[in-house]
Design a protein around this nucleic acid. Structure first.
Lengths: 172, 172
DNA sequence: GGGCGCATGTAATGAGTTACATGATTGA
DNA sequence: TCAATCATGTAACTCATTACATGCGCCC
């Protein structure tokens, strides 16, 4: 996921501090990106240096001070061009799970069927957990819907592969 | 893509030298992995040190010598366990193209439709190119089929999104 | 009073890529 | 003779992660 674009886009909706961004990503966008806390902080500093966002330190009582970020005009135009670029391009996807599929025939069909059954089960679990993530306004919900679409497509594909494996099994 | 598993699996079918592996990956598996030449060489050396594969230097005329690799028993059992692990697990996929979708509403529907149209076109092109990649025996062809399945699912998803955008447009 | 949540960061590490280096052969 | 292909590798770099460090507030 284009991490800078994501951060810019979120800050554009409303100004936020680092921890807040991290929490949002962790709780509401976990299915769509694996950006980590320190990466978020790092990118925020970098974009601040670049002049895309400005920090404003804020303190509540005696708690640790927050650095609240908001877009500058430069940040807005960076967002605009990153967005257009991202939307127009395709972003190739490589499935690391395919390394296994490529050599499926190294195992007996009984065993490979069982293993793929485990994979399928894990996919279903992911799909269920996705249903529990909170809904969002604007286009943000599209990323969840996309994951759902993708997971369903993956399950259908797995079923196709396992169905073919069944044909190679001796009929009982 | 689990790069070591891929290399082991290919070497398991037949012994190969580094350049041969790189060419195979570049020409026949480009849609499924983006492993680079130097990465392949690096991993081959690492696996040789580990005792998973053995080198045998081979010279043809005065050409640069080749290092032909083949699996050792240790390599075979490493392959077996990597394979089982890979097949049973799910490998989460994050779409960097979703960073754009998330903020689709930052643009006028006319423009976002046009940009997604470009994305769709690029996907179609990729699909066409995939049709040209040579077919392979065993389960290897599954990785191509999987890409095809995925690309079609992506195009369908894009169409759904653009169809929704149309509803927001004023009717002419 | 002990652990979790808030809030930010640094340092070390890692996986993989880019760019470069080398040198012979083959074909236009 | 000049570029492309064959064949292998090294060095520098990028991006992101893990693990660690800090310190206050809140709740049980």
């Amino acid at each position: 996921m284009d991490r800078e674009l994501l951060l810019l886009g979120l800050l554009r909706r409303e100004e936020m501090h680092g921890y807040q961004l991290y929490e949002f990503i962790e709780h509401d966008l976990a299915s769509c990106t694996d950006m980590k806390k320190s990466t978020a902080y790092y990118l925020l500093n970098k974009m601040a240096e670049r002049g895309w966002i400005t920090e404003e330190t804020e303190q509540e009582g005696n708690r640790p001070p927050r650095r609240v970020y908001s877009l500058t005009p430069d940040g807005e135009s960076a967002f605009q061009s990153l967005l257009r670029e991202n939307l127009a391009e395709t972003h190739p996807v490589y499935f690391s799970g395919d390394a296994g599929l490529a050599f499926l025939d190294a195992l007996e069909p009984e065993e490979s069927t069982a293993l793929l059954e485990q994979r399928r089960h894990a996919l279903e679990r992911t799909l269920e957990r996705l249903g529990e993530t909170p809904a969002h306004g604007g286009s943000l919900h599209l990323v969840i819907e996309h994951q759902v679409h993708h997971l369903k497509s993956e399950i259908a594909w797995l079923d196709e592969v396992t169905a073919r494996l069944q044909h190679t099994l001796p009929e009982e």
